[in-house]
């Protein structure tokens, strides 16, 4: 019994702006199912005294002092821009979104 439907994969793909074919949707739904099942197995093993882990390194508080570094020059920043104008990145028209 699949817990991840093709529709859910399609919705996630839409949110992530990934274009998937029907065949890919079917294949990914099956693969994601396996991953979800594996995570569920871990969840069954992890008891309340096992803290949630979000990072493989056992480190906390990696901070830097508030010291300015040399920024990129504007032309360097724009060097890889597909399109630029007036020292700014030019991007396609934005529709149906907030300002």
């Amino acid at each position: 019994m699949s817990t991840i439907s093709r529709e859910e994969v399609a919705r996630l793909a839409g949110l992530a702006r990934i274009d998937l074919t029907d065949a890919e949707l079917t294949r990914l739904a099956t693969e994601l199912d396996v991953i979800v099942e594996a995570v569920a197995t871990v969840s069954r093993v992890a008891t309340d005294d096992v803290p949630a882990t979000s990072h493989p390194l056992p480190l906390v508080n990696v901070l830097r002092p508030d010291v300015v570094v040399q920024p990129l020059a504007a032309d360097q920043a724009l060097a890889a821009a597909p399109s630029a104008e007036d020292g700014r990145f030019a991007v396609p028209q934005i529709l149906g979104e907030d300002a």
């Binding site: 508030d66 010291v67 300015v68 570094v69 920024p71 990129l72 504007a74 920043a77 724009l78 020292g87």
Partner: peptide
């Protein structure tokens, strides 16, 4: 702050566009 949240680029109001990035 003098710099941004996650990098040392300076934080300035009203500079040339894209002159304060890393």
């Amino acid at each position: 702050t003098a710099t941004k949240m996650f990098d040392g680029a300076p934080q300035e109001f009203g500079g040339e566009p894209n002159s304060a990035t890393t």
